[in-house]
Each structure stands twice: as structure tokens, then as C-alpha cells.
Write a protein that binds this DNA or RNA. Structure first.
Lengths: 226, 226
DNA sequence: AGTTCACAAATGATATCACATATGCTAGAT
DNA sequence: ATCTAGCATATGTGATATCATTTGTGAACT
């Protein structure tokens, strides 16, 4: 198992950096569904003792990114069509909610930064750098929802991202087939117009087209439907 | 700090039981907002070494039930009016979503069990057993949302309950002032009629009246508004 | 060849220890 | 009396050791 390192500032705790590394790896789909993990294996891979690894894994298990089996072993959960569709539906509900509640706090400056992120995404797409595309996409959404100063939904949203993550590589490969219209441009237009209804619509379409269609295709080809 | 014990079956791990105990205590509001916690303090209180306590605490921190401060100390987060209103709004969005997606899987047998829970709540209310009332209420909601076999929203919902928990005792004391109409009865009626719109309406009203109004009152009386 | 049992290796869970940092208290200076 | 410096204590973090349980392997048996 090879978990890429991540830049960390000096004061971060080992537990924290393990958490960040695993989280990142899961979210971009580095680790495939069904992968079995061991505390000592991860600890060895990262050159640490099992202690901080256990703490990081526990956190991820509470976010439903890692599954603790009855035999006390750990695994990345398998994806099924039913679970996938529930996750996408939840993602839409949560992100439409978060977008709606961010709009009143939105400044032109943030819109500008969102625009820049979208530009970077265009570059990543043309370079076929799919992991980077994924990260930038999530960063775009996170930034929008975080402008609400009392925001409490981002952690829930990130948990859904984590659960969809292992499946991400398979989905994103097909994204060009289904993602004909650039919904981020629509989101940006709605933001500039401060148009709530348009924003909610564009957000839903973005998520649905970015994951649902291609994801379902992959799943009906490969996986059990239960 | 006195964290009540909880019944556990033989095979549960120490870490797991600490997690369950803390979680329960936070959810019914045993621990007040702003309370400072220490690993060793909790460990001593439960007769365990710090190791399993750390893991349980880490999990709860990832569910935003416990806050890790920059000095690496831990505390139960303070509540503010802004955060409170965001939490209630998120609770409504999530639970309306979950209720809607459970309805298609609902059996008469489950409706019967929900009815029984509601009866128990009436008794708890007449006995003024407020902690029990809280637990039964959450159990009622959890049972409904869990009939969806592919359900993925309950963990997110429980995280919101956890974040509202420390505030629960103050709110529930006032519940009689605002909770004039029994919205659980309305939910049950909607379930029996398989009426989605009525279900969603009743769910929203139940949550809003059960927490929002009395909660806001408590907060505007006591706390900073930021 | 396939099955079963026994033993070895791997793994998870927890306590303990060592270390670094943060906190709190006391004594001295102003 | 108040502030500050310094030291003792408390606390968080992580490595290690130990034990119980699970997994895996190989030999004996059918």
C-alpha cells in the first residue's frame, strides 16, 4: 500500500498527518473499494508506530470512510448501486442546502477566486490530470459553502465525498461522456446574479452530471445491485 | 466529571464503550457547552488507560461533538445563535430528505413500532423524565430513517444531534411552552396514508417546534449572537 | 485430492513509559 | 499589591510491550 505524502506544517501531529494522508488518498480514489487495511501495515508504510495510525483510522471510520468489520479488521467499503444512488441524492440535498445558505454572504472577491479555480479546472481537464480535477472540483464547492460564517454542513458534505471517493477514479474517467455542459460556469453566473433558484438548479445539475450518470454506468456494468 | 455507564455486550471493545458513553452523555446534554475535558481525566473517571479514551475522543472530534483547541486541549463547543440556527436548518433539510426516502420502504409493522415509541414518549413527558424523552425522540426519528435499506444519511443526522446535544437540557425544559401540537401524531398519520408531502411537512414542523423556538429563546436570553 | 486439526504468524486492543509542551503556582522584584 | 521569572505539575503525543483473537499454513488423516 502506497499512500502519497502530503505537505504539512511543522506543528501538525502525527495522527493529524496520517488522517490527512489517508483522507486525501481515499477522496481521490487512490484506494479501491474492498481494499483491506491493517494498522501495522499502514504504520509501516508511513514509518510510524500503530498508535497515531489507529487514531486516524478511528476518525475515518466515524466518517464512514473506513469500515470496521465484525472481526475487527478494516476495509474500504464496497460500493453498490443502491448505496451509490443514496449518496448522490444526499450530496445533492446537502450541497443545494449549503449553496443556498452561502449566497447571502457571498462577496465579489470570493466569486473571483471561484472563477480562478474553475479556470484551473479547465487546464487540468485538458491535461487529463484527473486527480487534480477532482481536488479542484471539491475545493470549488468547499470554498463556496464556507463563506457562510456559521456554516455547519461542510463536514457532512465531506463525509459524503469520502464515501464516494473510492469510486471516483472509475467515475471521473467517464466524465467527458456525460459532462457536456459546464455547470460550474452556470453556478458562477447564478452567483454573480445573486439568483438563488438558478444557483440551486446549477448545483444539482453539476453533481448529478458529474457523478450520477457516469457512476451508474460503471456500477451497472460491474457491480451487484443490492 | 461523571459520565454514566451504559449497558454493553461482552464483545465490545473499551474504545467502543467509551465512545458510546461519551456520545450518549453529550447527546442528552449531560455535559454543558464549554466544558473542558482531559484524556487522563476521562480515563480515570472510567477506570481505563488513556489509549482507548483517545480513540473515542478522536472519533467524536471528527463528528464535531468535541472540539480540539489549538493548544491541543479538548472542549465541548460553545453554542451561538448563528450556529444554532444553522444546525436546526441542517437538521430539517437532512431529516426531511431521509423521511422522504424512507417512505417507500415503510411497512405497517414499523409504523406500529413507531406508534409504541410515541406512546412511551407520552409517558416520559407526563413523568417529566426529560432525558428519556430526548432519547425516545431520537430513537423515533432514527427508526424511521433506517427502514431505507441503502440509507446513508443517519450518520450525518446523528452528528447534528450531537452538536445540538449539549444544549438539549436547556431547550427541552421549555419544550412544553412551544410544542403545543403533537407533531409525532401527524408524522404517524402521514406514514399510514403514505403521504409524502404531509410527512415532509410534519417532520419539518416537529423539528422546528421541538428545538428551534425554545432554543432561540434560551440563546437570546443567555448567549452572544455571533 | 480434499478435509481437518494443530501450530505458527499476524493482527487488534490496551497499558505503560518516555518525552515535549502547556499550565499553574510560588517567590522575588518593583 | 502587582507583575514577572522560574519551577513543579499536568497534559497530550507517540513508541513499545503484552495479551487475546484471528488468520494462515502445513501435516496427518480419510
Amino acid at each position: 500500500m502506497n499512500i502519497p505524502e502530503l505537505p504539512v506544517d511543522a506543528d501538525t501531529t502525527d495522527q493529524e498527518s496520517v488522517y490527512a494522508r489517508l483522507r486525501h488518498a481515499i477522496m481521490v480514489g487512490t484506494i479501491e473499494p474492498g481494499t483491506n487495511l491493517t494498522m501495522r501495515g499502514l504504520a509501516d508504510a508511513m514509518g510510524l508506530s500503530p498508535t497515531p495510525v489507529r487514531e486516524a483510522v478511528r476518525r475515518l471510520s466515524s466518517e464512514n470512510a473506513i469500515e470496521i468489520l465484525p472481526n475487527r479488521r478494516m476495509a474500504i467499503p464496497e460500493m453498490t448501486l443502491g448505496r451509490f444512488e443514496e449518496l448522490v441524492a444526499l450530496r445533492i440535498t446537502l450541497e443545494v442546502h449549503a449553496a443556498e445558505r452561502s449566497l447571502p454572504y457571498l462577496s465579489d472577491h470570493v466569486i473571483e477566486k471561484l472563477q480562478q479555480l474553475d479556470d484551473e479546472m479547465d487546464i487540468a481537464l485538458s491535461e487529463e490530470n484527473l486527480d487534480k480535477l477532482t481536488i479542484l472540483n471539491l475545493k470549488f464547492h468547499r470554498m463556496l459553502y464556507s463563506v457562510n460564517p456559521n456554516q455547519v454542513s461542510v463536514p457532512a458534505i465531506e463525509s459524503v465525498w469520502l464515501q464516494l471517493g473510492p469510486f471516483q477514479r472509475q467515475v471521473v474517467k467517464r466524465v467527458k461522456e456525460f459532462y457536456k455542459i459546464d455547470r460550474h460556469k452556470e453556478i458562477l453566473t447564478a452567483l454573480r446574479a445573486r439568483d438563488v433558484a438558478a444557483l440551486m438548479n446549477a448545483t444539482e445539475s453539476d453533481i448529478r452530471e458529474g457523478s450520477s450518470r457516469s457512476g451508474r454506468r460503471v456500477l451497472t456494468e460491474n457491480l451487484p445491485t443490492t
